[in-house]
Each structure stands twice: as structure tokens, then as C-alpha cells.
Write a protein that binds this DNA or RNA. Structure first.
Lengths: 188, 188
DNA sequence: CTACTTGATGACAGTAGCTGACATCGGTGC
DNA sequence: GCACCGATGTCAGCTACTGTCATCAAGTAG
């Protein structure tokens, strides 16, 4: 028998999410999160860099999925094609997790610090996408802009997905946004 | 004669900038900034919501300039045309301030908290742009996406402007990015 | 001229996020 | 059996940030 309960990190994530929902992010102290998880405040900070980071554990895997899909796209695909393929893959990955996504977004939308953290996660994702596109031979300029446009599409599609009351899938929102992007930039 | 030296806010901004450059953002305490400005820590927090905000006083006027230019664009202009016009106006406004922009970006790039704050300022700007485009009659979807694309162009152009060693103007970078955006979304 | 109000600042105490240093003690390898 | 490792606890401390009350020049009313 081991000295401690297993999965301290997971318990901290769950406790944090519960408390952020119950009382709000600002009203929750790290000490409370740790206590609910059966740990101390100091241990919280060994697992997560700060009070915000505990909500963003999924960012790493999401970025991997994005980057791998771009890397695996056929060599003939344009940069935007490769990004579109990644968006499809990611949309499939979110399928069935609408409710948890909604809860998380509700917490984040209620607090500016959390929005900041989400934005920098998306910016990091865009940087990783940029690098993946460069690996495929795109120019710096093309890679950077395509990545930013792709992330913009993802961000807006995601917001609409969790905000909508109808039954549209994330992948449908993404397709709509990609079409709209083409339309919006076509003129002139 | 008045009771205190005038322009406390400006003195705080200048002191903060100097100290962030001299010793770095993290190594600077708010008490030090206030002391250099001849004030107390408490007064710093009456002028700025937090230690980061003192670097972003220009965000408000910038947003106004963006929004007003979009609003004043001819009724026949497409949403992207209106945003392009705003980008031109903003580029003209930055002309001649390359060195101060560089200093500021150097400080921001060295610290994650400051990058987060910059990102949320850009997101707020995108939201304001979205609203301005909606006022012109654009749909929610079009307005949102055009605003985000425009801000992406601005962000990348600005980075290249302050990062480049050559003599290209911000407006040239913006034109190049707008062309590239069209090219990148045209395919398929 | 006096009294009252206003507004920017100072003084001070307190909370909470976050860090460094050291102790603890099951599990693991030799 | 012993040394080491790694996850956790304990504790002291710094600093960002807030609430509250005091201060006092300048403006305003009468």
C-alpha cells in the first residue's frame, strides 16, 4: 500500500473545477482546493504553476493533436488545407464533451485572469502551428498568418458551439467559419 | 500652488517603464515604482488596476482610433475594406514611434504576464471592432471573423515592424499581410 | 471671511498567491 | 539492511493588491 492516495494532480483539478463552479474563481482560495483534494497548498503549487493553470491541463494534448495532424496532412495540401484538416480532427476529439466544455467556458468567461490565460494558450498553439507549417515548407509569413487565421476560426467556432442552443456540431461551425473566412477576404 | 506635483499618472508610467527596462518587470516592485515617482504604493494602485496595466495606457486611444475609422469608412466599403482602412490609419499613427514601440515590446516579450495582458487588450480591441462592423450592418459572423482576421494582421505586422532591421514602414507590413491573407484563403 | 465640500494622497493593517528551505517517510534498488 | 529517491508536509517570508480612515490644499457657497 502506498503512502498517499494516487492521482493527486487529478484530484486537484477536480476539486478546483468544483469550487470554481460552486463559489467562483476569485472567491476560491488555493488552500480550499488543496484541502478538498486532501493535500496542502504547497503541494498544489508543485503540480500547477499557479491558480489558473489547473484549468488548462488539456492545452498540451490539444496542441499535440493540432500539430500532428498538420504534420500528417498530404504533402500536396496547402497550408490552409492542412490547418483545416487539423481543425476537423480537433472537432472530432471534442465530440461528446459539450457539457464539460460549457462548464469550463462558463468559469473562464466569468474571470479576466482566466481569459488572459486562455488567450496565451491559444497564442502558444498558434506558434506551434506556425512551426508545423514551416516544417512543411511554408514561408514564415504564410505559416504565421495561416496559423493565426486557423486559430481565429477555432476560437470563434468553439465559442459558438458552446454558446448555441441548437444542436450543431463543432465541425459544422468550423466549416461555416472557414467558408466565411474565404468570403470575407475574397472581395476587392 | 497646488499641493502635489502634477501628472502623477504620467510619472508612474515613466518610472515603471524605466525600472522595467533597467531591472526587468519581475525584479521591480510596485513600491520602487511609486518611490521613483515620489508617491506611495497605494497611490500607484489608485491610478492603475495592477502592476501590468501601467504599460497599457495606450490601449484605449488605439481602440478609439480603430473604431472611429471603421465607423467613418464609406458605406460602400466591405467589412474587410473598413478594417483595412482602420489598419492604415493606425499605422500612420505609429509612424515615428518605432523606438519606443521597440522598447515596450522588449519588456513585454520578456514576461508571460505582460504577454497575457497584451493579448487580452487585442481581444478587447477585436470585440470593439466586431461591434463597429455590426453597426455598419455586417452579420455577427462576418463582423466577428473580419475583426479577428484584422487583428491578426495587425499583430503580425506590428511584430515584424518592431523586429525588422530593415527600414520598412508598418503600413507596408500591413499591406503585405493583407495580400497574404487573401492568397492564403483563396485556394481549394 | 468662514464654513463646508471635494479630491488626491498618505498611513496602516490585512488577505492571498507564490517561493525557498528543510523535514518526513514509504518504496525501490543494490 | 541500507542508502537513496520522490512525493508530500511544515514553516517562514515576500509582494501584489484591497479596505479604511486621516490629511489638507483648493474650490464653492453664503
Amino acid at each position: 500500500m502506498s503512502r498517499w492516495e494516487p492521482n493527486a494532480r487529478g484530484r486537484l483539478q477536480q476539486s478546483a473545477m468544483e469550487l470554481y463552479i460552486e463559489h467562483g474563481y476569485e472567491q476560491t482560495t488555493v488552500a480550499e482546493i488543496a484541502k478538498r483534494a486532501g493535500l496542502t497548498e504547497r503541494t498544489f503549487f508543485r503540480h500547477f504553476a499557479d491558480k489558473r493553470e489547473v484549468l488548462f491541463a488539456g492545452a498540451g494534448p490539444l496542441q499535440e493533436l493540432f500539430v500532428n495532424t498538420v504534420a500528417d496532412a498530404p504533402a500536396t495540401a496547402t497550408p490552409m488545407d492542412a490547418v483545416a484538416a487539423a481543425l476537423d480532427t480537433v472537432a472530432a476529439d471534442f465530440k461528446g464533451h459539450l457539457e464539460s466544455a460549457r462548464q469550463r467556458q462558463t468559469v473562464i468567461r466569468a474571470n479576466a485572469e482566466l481569459q488572459e490565460r486562455e488567450l496565451i494558450k491559444l497564442a502558444t498553439l498558434a506558434a506551434a502551428l506556425t512551426e508545423a507549417l514551416r516544417q512543411r515548407g511554408a514561408s514564415d509569413l504564410t505559416a504565421r498568418l495561416t496559423a493565426e487565421a486557423g486559430i481565429a476560426v477555432f476560437k470563434i467556432a468553439f465559442e459558438r458551439w458552446v454558446g448555441d442552443t441548437d444542436q450543431r456540431e463543432l465541425s459544422q461551425h468550423i466549416r461555416e467559419l472557414l467558408d466565411e473566412l474565404k468570403a470575407v477576404t475574397a472581395g476587392g
